[in-house]
Design a protein around this nucleic acid. Structure first.
Length: 221
DNA sequence: ATCCCGAGGG
DNA sequence: CCCTCTGGAT
C-alpha cells in the first residue's frame, strides 16, 4: 500500500468507529494486566465471562494472593491454558507487590519482567492504560497486516516494526484497536467478509471472498 | 477440524 | 527454531 492508501485505510476504519476500545472488561490497571494475560488463545467473550465474577472479588494483587492459585483456577477453568495462567497470575501479582510497590509499571521493559507478560501483552497495557502509541500484534493484526499488505512479516515483531513505520498520525493511538476489531468482525480467519469490507479496494489479498457463502440452513423436508 | 488480543521452555 | 499448555465456540 502507498502512503495515501494507508491513510485512507485508517480514515475509513476511524470513520466507522471513532472511539474504539478494548472489549476486555476491567476496572483498573491491575485488572487489565490480568485480563490480557488470561486472553492468550482465548476469546474476549470467554475471558469476560470468567473475570466478571473474579474481578468483583479481586481488585488488587494482594487480594489475588489471598485468593490463591487453586482459588484462581476455579474462576478460570473455562478458559484455555488455565494451569499455566493461574501460576503466572499469582507470580505476577507477587512480583508487583515485591518489586513495583503494588503498582503496574508504565514501561515495556518492566512489564515484560512479569511472569506471563510478553511483548504483546505489555503493548496492550501501554496502549490501553497509559495511552502510549504501541502496536500490539495479536493473531488478528498479524493476519490483517499480512493479508492486506499493510504490514507484512514472518513474525509479529516484524509486523509491529512495519506498523511503527507506516501508520501515520492521527491514527497511531487507536490503530491497534481498529485493526483488531477489523480482524475480529470482518477480516476473519476462516472466511473474510470482503463483501462488506470498507477497505476492500485498498487490500492486496488475492483470495477475496466477494460474496457471502450460500446459507447452510437446511431446506424443510 | 480450526481458531481465539501468547508466553515460556527446550 | 520447535513444542506445550487448554477449554469453548463455530
Amino acid at each position: 500500500m502507498t502512503k495515501d492508501e494507508i491513510f485512507e485505510f485508517f480514515r475509513r476504519l476511524a470513520e466507522d468507529n471513532p472511539a474504539p476500545e478494548t472489549e476486555l472488561e476491567y476496572g483498573n490497571a491491575y485488572q487489565l494486566v490480568v485480563a490480557v494475560a488470561l486472553s492468550a488463545q482465548a476469546t474476549d467473550v470467554g475471558v469476560n465471562k470468567a473475570t466478571r465474577k473474579l474481578f468483583a472479588e479481586v481488585e488488587t494483587p494482594e487480594q489475588m494472593i489471598a485468593l490463591g492459585e487453586e482459588g484462581l483456577k476455579e474462576h478460570i477453568k473455562t478458559i484455555g491454558l488455565f494451569n499455566s495462567k493461574a501460576k503466572n497470575v499469582i507470580a505476577l501479582s507477587q512480583m508487583l507487590i515485591d518489586e513495583f510497590g503494588g503498582e503496574v509499571p508504565d514501561t515495556r521493559d518492566a512489564l515484560v519482567k512479569l511472569p506471563g507478560v510478553g511483548r504483546k501483552t505489555a503493548n496492550v497495557v501501554l496502549n490501553c492504560w497509559f495511552g502510549q502509541e504501541t502496536f500490539a500484534v495479536d493473531t488478528h493484526i498479524f493476519r490483517v497486516g499480512n493479508r492486506t499488505g499493510l504490514a507484512r512479516g514472518k513474525t509479529p515483531e516484524q509486523v509491529e516494526a512495519k506498523l511503527e513505520k507506516r501508520v501515520p498520525q492521527p491514527f497511531r493511538l487507536h490503530a491497534h484497536h481498529w485493526l483488531i476489531l477489523h480482524g475480529r468482525y470482518i477480516c476473519k480467519a476462516r472466511v473474510p467478509e470482503c463483501w462488506r469490507c470498507p477497505v476492500v479496494d485498498l487490500c492486496a489479498f488475492k483470495q477475496k471472498v466477494l460474496q457471502p457463502p450460500a446459507s447452510r440452513a437446511k431446506a424443510p423436508k
